[in-house]
């Protein structure tokens, strides 16, 4: 077990202030505090080589959890061990073994080319010269930033910058990667590049990756396991597939016919959502019918040219989880 979290809890003390100058003066004299529970006694384990997605709406407690696991925040109560370290107690020794990216916060020097930051990190992590050169060369090649790394950061596009952020997080060859919203604000192509790279890091280099995001397509492409968190509590922990199975009641089957049908009759539990000349969309209620029986039915009764089963989008799944 590479990460072990038990009843981890973080409370923030905030104070209420009425608006305006009078409110400010009042709050100087007497402050009314309010305790906000950001993470509410969560427990989970992560095995070596897992690719875990932390999902949930804004303010759910994803980032707070990551910040405790990276040693930045001290929890109010509970315990956690990552690679055998208690992050917030043994921070300086521990962070050598992890890579961290906060998508909204750059660690590149704004007015310098990324290469200068890489060299600074070489000193900070005390990386051996030869290892540093080898790793940098490999990462630069994988991410295709050979020229980009020599241009001042302020002149880079967000996608280029993000690639360089990934290099900063990987130069010291960490075993575990914590990524907080790493694809935020990126366009489709840049996102795809980053995802491919992450897949490679996880599969080939066996890095354990913990990712928080509210971009569900990230999770769908990358993570086998997800933890769904809301109001500081874990409301689902398991394979992405099961999450779908549990909360998905309908599936959509799209058919293309080789000839025109005036009337489409269907077995029980299936209903026609739309139909045009040669095409039809059929929804299957999984409680009453199955996709395979519908397909058999269609093939027996119609001349089918093409057929596809649409998986439900994870956004819809999550909406269902909240509704139930």
């Amino acid at each position: 077990m590479i990460i072990r979290v038990r009843e981890l809890r973080k409370e923030f003390k905030t104070y209420k202030k009425e608006p305006g100058i009078i409110g400010s003066l009042k709050s100087l004299v007497r402050r009314r505090y309010k305790i906000k529970v950001a993470v509410d006694d969560i427990s989970f384990d992560v095995k070596k080589g897992e690719f875990l997605g932390f999902i949930g709406p804004n303010g759910a407690g994803k980032s707070t959890t990551i910040k405790m696991l990276t040693g930045i925040l001290t929890p109010t109560s509970g315990e956690a061990k990552v690679l055998g370290f208690v992050p917030w107690k043994q921070r300086e020794k521990y962070v050598k073994h992890i890579g961290v990216i906060f998508g909204q916060k750059s660690q590149l020097w704004w007015d310098l080319p990324p290469l200068d930051t890489f060299h600074l990190l070489k000193e900070i992590y005390e990386i051996d010269e030869k290892e540093f050169e080898e790793r940098l060369e490999r990462l630069v090649k994988l991410l295709e930033v050979k020229d980009v790394q020599k241009i001042p950061v302020r002149n880079l596009s967000l996608g280029e910058r993000m690639k360089c952020e990934f290099i900063t997080a990987l130069l010291h060859d960490p075993k575990v990667l914590f990524l907080d919203e790493p694809t935020i604000g990126l366009d489709v192509v840049a996102k795809e590049n980053i995802r491919k790279f992450l897949m490679l890091m996880n599969k080939r280099e066996k890095k354990t990756i913990i990712l928080t995001t509210h971009d569900m397509s990230d999770v769908e492409e990358l993570c086998k396991r997800v933890i769904l968190i809301d109001k500081g509590k874990i409301i689902y922990d398991g394979p992405l597939k099961k999450l779908k199975e549990k909360f998905v009641e309908n599936k959509l089957v799209e058919v293309e016919f080789s000839k025109e049908y005036k009337e489409i009759f269907l077995p029980e539990g299936c209903s026609l959502i739309y139909s045009s000349k040669y095409k039809a969309g059929i929804e299957v209620n999984l409680k009453k019918a199955s996709v395979s029986s519908l397909i058999t039915f269609l093939l027996n009764n119609f001349e089918v040219k093409d057929l596809s089963i649409k998986e439900p989008k994870i956004e819809e799944v999550i909406r269902k989880v909240y509704e139930s």
């Binding site: 300086e92 962070v95 961290v100």
Partner: peptide, 13 residues
Amino acid sequence: SGNMIQKMTKPMS
């Protein structure tokens, strides 16, 4: 600015 977070994830105080 949040840069403190970057400094805290480095292997030194």
